[in-house]
Design a protein around this nucleic acid. Sequence first.
DNA 1: CTCTAATCGAGACGGTACGTCGCGTCTTACG
DNA 2: CGTAAGACGCGACGTACCGTCTCGATTAGAG
Lengths: 185, 185, 185, 185
Amino acid sequence: MQLNPPIALDRRVRKSRQALCTALLYLLLEKPFEQITLQEITDRADLAYTTFFRNYSDKDALLKDLAQTQIERLLDLALPLFSAKDSSTSTLSMCNYVQEHRQIWTALLTGGAAANVREMFVRQVESRADQWPAQPTWLPASFGSVILSNITLDVLALWLNKAPATAPNEIAAMLAKFFKVIDDS
Amino acid sequence: MQLNPPIALDRRVRKSRQALCTALLYLLLEKPFEQITLQEITDRADLAYTTFFRNYSDKDALLKDLAQTQIERLLDLALPLFSAKDSSTSTLSMCNYVQEHRQIWTALLTGGAAANVREMFVRQVESRADQWPAQPTWLPASFGSVILSNITLDVLALWLNKAPATAPNEIAAMLAKFFKVIDDS
Amino acid sequence: MQLNPPIALDRRVRKSRQALCTALLYLLLEKPFEQITLQEITDRADLAYTTFFRNYSDKDALLKDLAQTQIERLLDLALPLFSAKDSSTSTLSMCNYVQEHRQIWTALLTGGAAANVREMFVRQVESRADQWPAQPTWLPASFGSVILSNITLDVLALWLNKAPATAPNEIAAMLAKFFKVIDDS
Amino acid sequence: MQLNPPIALDRRVRKSRQALCTALLYLLLEKPFEQITLQEITDRADLAYTTFFRNYSDKDALLKDLAQTQIERLLDLALPLFSAKDSSTSTLSMCNYVQEHRQIWTALLTGGAAANVREMFVRQVESRADQWPAQPTWLPASFGSVILSNITLDVLALWLNKAPATAPNEIAAMLAKFFKVIDDS
DNA sequence: CTCTAATCGAGACGGTACGTCGCGTCTTACG
DNA sequence: CGTAAGACGCGACGTACCGTCTCGATTAGAG
């Protein structure tokens, strides 16, 4: 029996954080993460500079808050793809998800924070390593997840960035081809 | 019979730049690129702070100078791998090269500048796109090189970082497996 | 009934500026203005280096802030000296004022900023030119104020610098003698 | 019996110094002494930057070389003015001299080096204090020369700067009037 | 007329100070 | 009394200028 969601945040706090997140999101479409200033973020969010620090300790903390959730959702859809059975299903549903949230994922993957996001992504995948039993035998332990993650992100980034017209199922097909290599003993 | 390198730089200049490059290289083994200070670099290079700017406009310019050459050399060895014939030969020679220059490539790929280096790498690969004719037919144009580059770098980075004991030919074998997917129509 | 001073500065700002002014004042007693470093000023004021620029655009701006007020006060006392009537009275009160603020005026007139202060002084005198009607007839327009200012400052500087024991009324007498030349047609 | 003039400087050296002096002179007409760069001086003199230091230790040394001679010549003409007899004669000849070298004295007195030149001037006058016996009795020792010097320079500077059309003898008359105050017991 | 030494051109370098920008803390003033 | 506005400490950056140095190339002037 749970009381409340983690400690039901003040509505104002939720609003501020939301504003900061979307502000960052839009800025990421314009310029690299490191070049984005807290001042710019708070300006765009229409909040006082100091308010930022009441909500996040850091610019990275904001990015994390922004990206972590997205990554989680994506992984919930994507992880089954490692289990060979419904690989194609999960791959496709992942691509559909990205398609639906095209803008946010464009910011995350092709914007300036790409490197950071990839790192978070890989770390999350590794922390869920136990969720799929079959490690490819021809790769050293933990090589698999890193490489798989990177290929996935590469394909998604290229899709969003260079070939936005491509249909989700085409992308899913490409990914599937790569995944098969790893599953093949 | 070669003329002279473009303008044969002053010996002092060459020395300074060399000092700065090696200074950066060692610092990259210790901490992320963005956290490295120009002061630290010049201190380690035993040069005056202002001398940095006489040689490079930027911290990035230094990294570029440092990495670009290395990448070129690596690509000279690696590029034939795209032409299916001697794929395995070139892959192996590339791995051997990395093995021989393990330290520098560890700094570049697993240190803090990894993201930048990857970007440079991809850009160079793309600019040499004409050097291997066979583009995979099942991938949109220019997807191939990016993904191939990233897989290559992923594997190399993991090798240097997590499994340094592995022999070059084992790594080459892994790479070959991935490359085959792309070549397969 | 006056509203408020222009915008009633933050108490911290007032404090910082005050600290910077007095810091400069003391340093002027030690060395020429040009040799005084912003670092020295902020060190002595016990403020961060960058805080200087939040309060003044320039070292000169600080000096101006420091000197302008003093000059104004002095001129309020001194200007009547040009109207022949109470010449002696105003000259004496000016000398007394300088005597009372001996230290600050020593810094301004005999310290390293003397040249700048003289210039400000002359400029202020000229801008108040309308406050005394009688221009000497035997001098080109505007010669009078400049020369008068310089003589005044020369005498004051020498007094503070070389003959500090002299009584104010003696100095006033000297000045009076010079002023008489100008008033004499 | 003297061997050679001080050591007959190399013709090149003489040329360089001359070029540097005139370069500075012209620059002084444009901007304050402190804002003049060694680079600017050597550029204008069409000499290498390092050549400056082969001839002068300092920017001040150059100014001194430039001004000292001029001041000497002026004082040779002007000093008799302190001996009441031929006051008017010497004052006039001084004014004539300045008129003839109008440009150089404009640079020295109204340009950016005015403060330094004044100081040199006063110092030279004081070092020649013995050349005129009659110290005014109503002024503390050594007040006389400083004030006299400053008045002289003030008048000359104003002349050159604001009333260039005025004839030398008019200026001489003004000066005479001031000098009389001091000579009067 | 040559030879030698001083001077010059060119520019890298060490170093000091300046002024700017951004982060994160902390205080003030205001609603 | 809590929140905005924003001053402040701090650290890094990049610039400008000074004065030193090295290395050739040039030239003056003595023999």
